[in-house]
């Protein structure tokens, strides 16, 4: 019994937990189509990786390895910035396409493309807001 307890030290238990979270997040990312859920799945995968890293930091007797912990802190901040940008992109996509879902199939290749180099900033045409006049973000496109 005590042998088992030694083996289940945090240095091994948490990395295993982290690996399971990584796989769970991967499964969620593949299965779900709603972008917010996919972003959540990515965050859970990230937490899984950080759990593995911090589990590794806690290995061995002495105090935990500060380098690994510093890396995790960096990782968390990177994760939050990536998530924030992704959510801003999702909102933008919803405003353009009317829903926040990316279907698994390949994209339609010949969608009409106009490019920004032809845009001139004469008058700032405010897109008429059908809901209510919150100051729509500058639809310059």
């Amino acid at each position: 019994m005590s042998g088992l307890v030694e083996t289940l030290a945090p240095g091994l238990l948490y990395p295993t937990g982290g690996a399971i979270l990584f796989a769970l997040g991967l499964y969620g990312l593949i299965r779900r189509h709603h972008l917010v859920l996919r972003i959540l799945a990515l965050n859970i995968m990230g937490s899984g990786v950080f759990m593995v890293l911090l589990g590794i930091a806690a290995r061995g007797e002495g105090p935990p390895d500060p380098v690994a912990q510093a890396l995790t802190l960096t990782g968390i901040v990177v994760a939050v910035s990536a998530t924030a940008f992704a959510l801003a992109l999702v909102v933008r996509l919803a405003r353009l396409t009317g829903n926040a879902i990316i279907l698994p199939g390949p994209p339609d290749d010949d969608a009409p493309v106009d490019d920004i180099s032809r845009l001139e900033h004469h008058a700032h045409t405010e897109a008429p807001e059908h809901i209510e006049p919150t100051a729509r973000s500058g639809e310059r496109r």
Partner: peptide, 17 residues
């Protein structure tokens, strides 16, 4: 695969020293 790899890893202390 991840779990098996992690189980094979040595229980060494990192860069703390």
């Amino acid at each position: 695969l991840l779990v098996t790899t992690l189980w094979h890893q040595p229980d060494a202390a990192g860069l703390e020293p």
